[in-house]
């Protein structure tokens, strides 16, 4: 299986994702420059974290116009699995591939810490190996991760089971104290209508080896491998 990891000017978790996929997961990966227009025959697309274009204007607001984005939209439309991590999630929001927007963290602080998130849905390609309600420990590192959507959109997301991850305490309780940024309904990650595009603020690629504090994030990458294998895509 081949992962395309998209590199924007200012991406800084591209090599973390590359390492997790190739060295830990043992799959193929290729770094794809944002000005490219082809996804190098990839089976999975990852938009990594970072500060694309310096976060100028709004997070992800300029990256969404990169030439590669048309190919990613087409890949997603055909059902290809797309994972946006942190700034990658922000880019998917700005591109309209996922609904809503990010606001400045409610306490105005940049949060760089490990948090707990609860897997709410096990039927996306990136959570296929997870049990519903499973709690995993992964780091966040963002200043604008305060998820917002207008009330009608939020209702639709909840009704359709499109909230994929929620911030929670270590026991899996969704509480205000466990919410690092003020996100509505403790939302840490969502998916699109067809469930193949997933975005989340925490960094699973930085939590794939016990030696660096947590290996829980590997679940996300193993899930997509299993999911595609089950679909007979490999």
């Amino acid at each position: 299986m081949k992962f395309a990891i998209v590199v924007f000017p200012g991406s800084n978790c591209d090599h973390d994702a590359y390492h997790a996929v190739t060295q830990v997961l043992g799959q193929q990966a290729e770094l794809v420059w944002h000005k490219d227009t082809h996804l190098a025959g990839a089976d999975v697309v990852v938009l990594p974290g970072g500060f694309s274009h310096g976060d100028y204007l709004r997070t992800g607001a300029i990256a969404r116009f990169s030439p590669i984005m048309a190919s990613i939209a087409e890949f997603a439309r055909r059902g290809g699995p797309v994972l946006g991590i942190c700034n990658g999630f922000q880019i998917l929001l700005e591109a309209g591939l996922l609904p809503g927007a990010m606001l400045r963290n409610q306490d105005l602080k940049f949060h760089c810490e490990h948090v707990w998130i609860r897997v709410e849905q096990g039927d996306t390609p990136f959570t296929a190996r997870a049990g519903r309600g499973q709690v995993i420990r992964v780091p966040v590192a963002h200043g604008e991760g305060n998820y917002y959507a207008d009330p009608a959109v939020l209702r639709d997301l909840e009704a359709a089971g499109r909230v994929v991850f929620r911030y929670c305490d270590p026991q899996g309780n969704v509480t205000d104290a466990a919410n690092p940024n003020g996100s509505l309904n403790n939302i840490a990650g969502i998916c699109d209508e067809t469930r193949n595009v997933v975005g989340l603020m925490p960094h699973p690629e930085r939590a794939c080896e016990a030696a660096i504090g947590s290996a829980d994030g590997l679940l996300i990458f193993e899930s997509v491998v299993t999911s595609l294998a089950q679909q007979g895509a490999l």
Partner: peptide
């Protein structure tokens, strides 16, 4: 299209 995000 660019300067404002109509969602927020």
């Amino acid at each position: 299209k660019v300067l404002a995000n109509p969602v927020i």
